[in-house]
C-alpha cells in the first residue's frame, strides 16, 4: 500500500473502524427494533417507526447538530456518558455514533422486511412444541432472517463508510480522529493539487463499497438456499 500516503492510509483505516463499530453497535438494537416494528402491536408503533426513519429524511446536518446538542460534553446525554468515562464529541467514537444513527433506518428496513417474510405459522408451530417467545425468536425467526441481517448490516456499513453531513457537523473534520474517507476526499478537493489524492480515495471508496456488496450478495444467496431447506 505504498501508493497511499500515511494520511490517506489513516483515513481508510479510520473509515473501516468507524463503519465497523457503527454497524456492530447498531445491529442488536436494529434487530430488536425491526422485530418490534414487524411483529409488535402496541401504542406508539407509528411513532417508533417515524423516529427510526427520521435520520433518513432529515438533512444530515440537522441530525449532526441534534447529536451535538445531545452528546456534547455539557449536553444531557454527553454529561451522563462522561460520568462513566465515555466521551464522544470530536473523536472517532463520535464519528461512529453519527454514522450508526444515519445507517440505522436502512438496517432496520432490511431486517424488518426479512422478519415480515418469515411465516408466522412456523413460529406458532415452534410455540406448540414448547418454545417460549424468546426461544422461538432464537431458534426459528433469527436463523431464518440471517440473509436479511447480512443485507442490513452491509447496507449500513456502506452507508456508514459514506456518511458525511452528520459526521462533519457532530465531530468536525480532524485528520486521524474524525476524518473518514468522504471527509478526506472533501478536504483534498479544498486544497490546490489535492485532486490526485482525492482520486485515489475515490477509487478505494468504490472498491470497498462494491466489494462489500458482492460479498453480501454471495453470502446471502448461500444462506437463503440453506434456510429454504435446499442443500447449499
Amino acid at each position: 500500500m505504498s501508493w497511499l500516503s500515511p494520511p490517506e492510509w489513516q483515513a481508510v483505516v479510520l473509515s473501516l473502524k468507524v463503519a465497523g463499530l457503527a454497524t456492530a453497535c447498531a445491529l442488536p438494537p436494529g434487530i430488536g427494533v425491526a422485530y418490534l416494528l414487524a411483529r409488535g402491536r402496541f401504542v406508539g408503533h407509528g411513532l417508533l417507526n417515524g423516529l427510526v426513519h427520521l435520520p433518513l429524511i432529515l438533512p444530515p446536518v440537522v441530525t449532526g447538530y441534534l447529536l451535538l446538542l445531545g452528546f456534547a460534553p455539557n449536553g444531557p446525554l454527553g454529561a451522563a456518558l462522561a460520568r462513566i468515562g465515555i466521551a464522544l464529541a470530536f473523536n472517532w467514537k463520535g464519528a461512529a455514533l453519527a454514522a450508526g444513527v444515519m445507517a440505522f433506518p436502512l438496517m432496520v428496513r432490511a431486517i424488518r422486511l426479512a422478519i415480515e417474510a418469515v411465516d408466522p405459522r412456523l413460529e406458532a408451530a415452534a410455540s406448540t412444541l414448547g418454545a417460549s417467545r424468546v426461544w422461538v425468536f432464537a431458534t426459528v425467526t433469527l436463523p431464518l432472517i440471517v440473509p436479511g441481517i447480512i443485507a442490513g448490516a452491509i447496507t449500513a456499513f456502506a452507508k456508514a463508510m459514506g456518511e458525511f453531513g452528520a459526521t462533519i457537523t457532530f465531530v468536525s473534520n480532524i485528520p486521524g480522529q474524525t476524518q473518514t474517507l468522504p471527509l478526506a476526499i472533501y478536504s483534498q478537493l479544498q486544497v490546490p493539487g489535492g485532486e490526485g489524492s482525492a482520486a485515489k480515495l475515490v477509487v478505494i471508496s468504490i472498491t470497498l463499497a462494491l466489494g462489500a456488496l458482492l460479498v453480501s450478495e454471495a453470502l446471502a444467496k448461500r444462506i437463503a438456499a440453506r434456510i429454504a431447506g435446499r442443500d447449499a
Partner: peptide, 18 residues
C-alpha cells in the same frame, strides 16, 4: 401455547426449513 404440552399436527407440515 409453549406451556400446554399439547402436540399440534397442522394441515401443512410446517417443518422448519433451516
Amino acid at each position: 401455547p409453549h406451556r400446554r404440552r399439547i402436540g399440534y399436527v397442522f394441515q401443512e407440515a410446517r417443518l422448519f426449513p433451516h
